[in-house]
Amino acid sequence: MPEKGFADIDTLVEKANRAAREFARLDQQAVDRIVLNMALAGLDKHMELARLAVEETGRGVYEDKATKNIFATEAVYHSIKYAKTVGVIRENEEEGYLELAEPVGVVAAVVPVTNPTSTTMFKSLICAKTRNPVIFSFHPGAQRCSAAAAQIMLEAAVAAGAPENCIAWIENPSYETTGYLMRHPGVALIVATGGAGLVRAAYSTGKPALGVGPGNVPCYIEKTANLRRAVTDLIMSKTFDNGLICASEQSLIIDREVAEEVISLMKENGCYFLNEEETRLLESVAVEQDTCTLDPRVAGQSAARIAEMAGFSVPPGTRVLVAGLPGVGPEHPLSMEKLSPILSYHIVDSFEEGTELCEKVVEYGGLGHTAVIHSEDRRAIEHFS
C-alpha cells in the first residue's frame, strides 16, 4: 500500500510543478481575481463544511466551526487582499535596490483533525495569493470534510483562471505518505499544523518549513484585573468549539487576593470545580496511559460528555470542568494541553510566583505559542510580556 501511495504522490508533485510554471506567468491582477473567487466560494459553503466537519470528526460545535470557516475565508482574504505578491513589491531609492516577490514552488500542507475545513481553506488562499501550488495531507479522521473544502477552493480557483492542478491532496493519507510528501524533492516548502511530532518531522526534512504545534496556554488573572471581563473572556475562549483551538487557555493562575471572587464568577457562568476523586477520574479518562497527551476521544467533546465518560455527573448547563492542581509537569498530567473544555487552576501568593508558574506551564509542551494575562497594571503586563 505505501508503494502505491508513494507513486500517487509522485504524480501529484509532477502535476503541481507543472501548475507552478503556469502560476509564475500570472500577474497581480489575475492572482487577486483568483483569490477573491476562492474566498467567496468558501464563504458561501461555510455552513455546509462546518456540518461535514462535525459529522465526520465527532468533535467541536457546529456554530463555532461555521465561524472559523468565515474567518478562514472572509477575514483572511481581507487581511491579504492588498498585499503585493507579484514582481516588484518595494523599491528603496536611497539604497538603490528593489524587492521582488517570486513563488517558492510546490507547498506540502498538513491539516489537523481539530480545524480541518478552516485550515484547508486558509492555506489554499495564502498559497494561491503567492502563486504556489499546494498538496494537502489531511488527517485521516477528517479526510472527507477536508477534501470537500479543498475541492471547493480548487474549482473556484480554476474557474477564475488558476492552473488546473494548483490544489491537490493525498486520497489515502497515512503517517508514511505524509512523510514521503514532506521529503519529496519536488516539494519546496512545508506548512504543517498538528502535534509536536509532526511539526518536528517537518522541520527535520531539511526544507524550509512553517510549523504550528501544540500550545499549553497559561492564563494569569492578576489582582488588578477587571474580574468579570477576565472570566467572561476566559470562558468564551475555553468553550469555543469545545476547546479545540490551540490558543485557548489550558491552566488558570489566580492571585489569592481575588481568587474567591474569580471562582464565584466562574461558577455563576457554568464552570464546575472538581473534587479530588472527580479529578482522579477525569485524569484516568482524559490522559492516554503512560503518556502526557490527551486521549483523542476526549478532544472537542462537551463538558457533560467528558464527565459522563469519566463516570461522574455534573449539573445541567456545565460548560467547563475545572481541576485544582498542586503543580505543573508530568506528575500532574492535567497541566498539559487539553483541547477540550477542561481547565486546571492554581492560586498564587505573589506576582512573581504567578509569572514563574506561567513559565512552567508554557515550558510543559507550549514553548513558542501563547500566554495570557488579565491586569490593569501596565508594569505587570510589560513584565509578564
Rank of each mutant, 00 (worst) to 15 (best):
I70G: 03
I70A: 13
F71C: 07
A72I: 03
A72C: 09
A72W: 02
E74R: 15
V76A: 11
Y77N: 04
Y77K: 02
H78V: 04
S79I: 08
S79W: 11
I80M: 09
I80S: 02
Y82H: 06
A83V: 11
T85Y: 13
G87R: 09
G87S: 09
I89D: 09
I89R: 12
R90T: 14
R90Q: 15
R90P: 13
R90K: 15
E91C: 07
E91Y: 10
N92G: 07
N92T: 08
N92K: 09
N92D: 15
E93H: 09
E93Y: 05
E94F: 03
E95S: 08
E95P: 07
Y97P: 01
Y97W: 10
E99P: 00
L100W: 14
L100S: 13
A101W: 09
P103I: 01
V104S: 00
V106S: 02
V106C: 05
V106R: 02
V110H: 08
V111W: 04
V111T: 04
V111I: 12
V111F: 01
V111C: 04
V113N: 12
N115L: 13
P116E: 12
P116T: 11
P116L: 08
T117S: 11
T117A: 14
T117F: 06
M121R: 12
F122Q: 08
F122W: 12
K129Y: 07
K129H: 10
K129Q: 10
T130F: 02
T130K: 06
N132Y: 07
P133T: 00
V134W: 00
V134E: 02
V134K: 03
V134P: 03
I135F: 02
S137N: 15
F138D: 07
P140S: 13
P140G: 07
P140H: 13
G141K: 11
G141R: 11
Q143L: 15
R144L: 03
A149P: 15
A150V: 14
A150R: 14
A150M: 12
A150S: 11
Q151K: 13
Q151D: 11
I152N: 04
I152V: 15
I152R: 05
M153G: 12
M153F: 09
M153P: 06
L154E: 05
L154I: 03
E155H: 11
E155S: 10
E155K: 12
A156I: 02
A157L: 14
V158L: 02
V158C: 01
A160I: 05
G161P: 06
A162Q: 04
P163A: 06
E164V: 00
E164W: 01
N165F: 08
N165H: 08
C166T: 10
A168M: 04
